[in-house]
């Protein structure tokens, strides 16, 4: 079957080519979202994506601002204008984080929650670390679902630090004077934050401590839930959790297929997972590419390819990272 493609990659496997293109595309999407100018990405941001990102950003800044100002709980944050004009809200790592949350919402909704064992099976585990991590994961997932007011608790330590001090600076600019009380409040917030309480980290801890083979978690997201599935992929591939979320939710199923192949997942399980997360999005063309490519994909090739993605992302995001 000949599939007309313009990918500029000279590999023989079309699935790998498409995977590589779309994996690159998720980085380009950050830029596109940030600037809303066309078009580095294969699929430019849709209005729905832009709207979801904006809404999550506003909620995040609003929640953090409310925590710092204690009495304020506005619809539109006081510091929004200043932060957006400064370009801070277009920092690639912040947009990447938000896009990962948008992806998480969509992918999480693909799994029937009533059938998910998630972390509950580990609650009574004799290994105290595992039981604690399971409890933390369940609490974090519940917090995520209950939503408003706490979105900042899902930030990475680095991002929380950056965003908090940017908001403090913006409040000072807005008020025109130094704000010692808010600075103290920010310090208190940061020192009380523990990233181990985040769902992603709790899931990764479960994978680390669990006696369950990671392969089982990778193959069965419908049983173990999104966080454990992604955490197991993250441990197996030494890939960042949010990067995996965005790759699964990319504009094509190909990057996800390449990741599953790199973990040695059978074609049957890979197809089941792809339909679970992308059943409503997969096109006949994509299905054809998967069908013809997956079995031919070598584990080594797939590992090499995703190594490229990880390093490309590290370079892409380095602009916004703390030194």
């Amino acid at each position: 079957m000949e599939i007309p493609l313009d990918h500029g990659v000279d590999d023989n496997n079309v699935l790998m080519k498409v995977g590589a293109e779309h994996a690159h595309d998720i980085d380009a999407l950050c830029t596109d979202i940030a600037s809303v100018i066309f078009p580095a990405a294969i699929n430019p941001p849709t209005e729905a994506t832009i709207s979801a990102v904006s809404a999550k950003l506003i909620q995040l800044v609003s929640d953090l601002e409310a925590r710092l100002l204690s009495k304020r709980n506005p619809h539109l944050p006081l510091t929004w204008d200043i932060l957006s004009k400064s370009g801070f809200l277009r920092e690639p790592d912040l947009i990447d984080f938000i896009l990962a949350r948008v992806a998480e919402d969509r992918l999480g909704a693909c799994i029937a929650q009533d059938k998910v064992k998630s972390a509950s099976t580990y609650l009574d585990h004799q290994n105290g670390m595992l039981a604690d991590a399971a409890q933390t994961l369940l609490a974090a997932e519940s917090l995520h679902r209950s939503g408003a007011g706490n979105t900042y608790l899902g930030l990475t330590s680095e991002l929380l630090y950056k965003l908090t001090w940017q908001i403090v600076a913006a409040i000072e600019i807005y008020e025109g004077v130094r704000q010692p009380a808010i600075i103290a409040s920010a310090k208190s917030l940061l020192s009380s934050f523990c990233e181990a309480d985040r769902a992603q980290d709790a899931a990764r801890k479960i994978v680390h401590f669990s006696e369950e083979p990671a392969h089982i978690l990778v193959c069965n997201p419908e049983i173990y839930g999104l966080h454990l599935h992604v955490a197991a992929l993250s441990a197996d591939l030494e890939f960042d959790h949010d990067h995996i979320l965005r790759l699964i939710d990319a504009s094509s199923a190909a990057p996800y297929a390449v990741m599953l192949a790199a973990c040695g997942v059978s074609k049957t399980h890979a197809l089941k997972n792809i339909f679970l997360f992308r059943g409503d999005l997969i096109t006949p063309r994509e299905a054809g590419i998967f069908e013809s490519g997956y079995s031919n994909l070598q584990l080594d090739e797939a590992l090499i390819q995703i190594g490229f993605w990880a390093s490309a992302r590290a370079q892409f995001l380095s602009g916004g990272k703390l030194p």
Partner: peptide, 21 residues
């Protein structure tokens, strides 16, 4: 950051590959 961190870290030398929490 003056923040508590809790992460898996992979380290390796010529003899072993380790994952530490």
């Amino acid at each position: 950051l003056q923040m508590k961190l809790s992460r898996a870290v992979r380290v390796a030398d010529d003899a072993e590959n380790l994952e530490l929490w």
